[in-house]
Design a protein around this nucleic acid. Sequence first.
DNA 1: CATATCAATCGTAAAATTACGATTGATATG
DNA 2: CATATCAATCGTAATTTTACGATTGATATG
Lengths: 109, 109
Amino acid sequence: MGATKKELFTKKQNEIAAMAKAIAHPARIAILHELLKANACICGDLVDELGLAQATISQHLKELKNVGLIRGTIEGTSICYCIDPLVWSAYKEVFAHFFKEAPASQNCC
Amino acid sequence: MGATKKELFTKKQNEIAAMAKAIAHPARIAILHELLKANACICGDLVDELGLAQATISQHLKELKNVGLIRGTIEGTSICYCIDPLVWSAYKEVFAHFFKEAPASQNCC
DNA sequence: CATATCAATCGTAAAATTACGATTGATATG
DNA sequence: CATATCAATCGTAATTTTACGATTGATATG
């Protein structure tokens, strides 16, 4: 045990959960905030901004890259990161759609 | 190590991450889907619907209750669950706001 | 009151996540 | 070419998450 039983759920359910998991860590939220704030590429000052070790941040960046939310481009001796606008809007859309349905009103429980 | 260093991040960042984590499992997405579909309370047939053990589902329900997304009311020998509309819209709002900012266009990386 | 039913909780095992130091590899720069 | 810099990766430890069987507690029902 310990491993999520993905086969029990629909593709959509696994997808939404995976997307949520990708942003389910404050460091990754902070990274995305930085990238949004800069509104452009950011070349590695992330290690200075957040207080985590270089290896840890690299790991978070990897996760964000794996789901496609960010891209990295080699820029001389350092690397530039930026948000992928298409994947970003896909995320926006999925969460908007998920929360779109309004739950039944107070009259239930 | 192994524990998230929450003190490094803003309250908002920790909040968004925590909200994402709450729905970062397909079983919890499936539970919310069921509650939305029923558009009312559901009395415990969740164990039959999802293929997980009763203890496991109870644990997922507990997490959803902890963040306030669902409520449970005792109904005779069983318990009725439903989505809390206010917390639900709070979630909708937070994610909508987070993804609202448009990242810089393709011209970057 | 004895029994059945439902859900929470306990205890525990397996796996995944988070974090970091150290190393590696790649690219400038002197 | 030697050296410095930056980021990925490796190896590993601590912690958290996921899952389940077993038990417990509470509420109906005979």
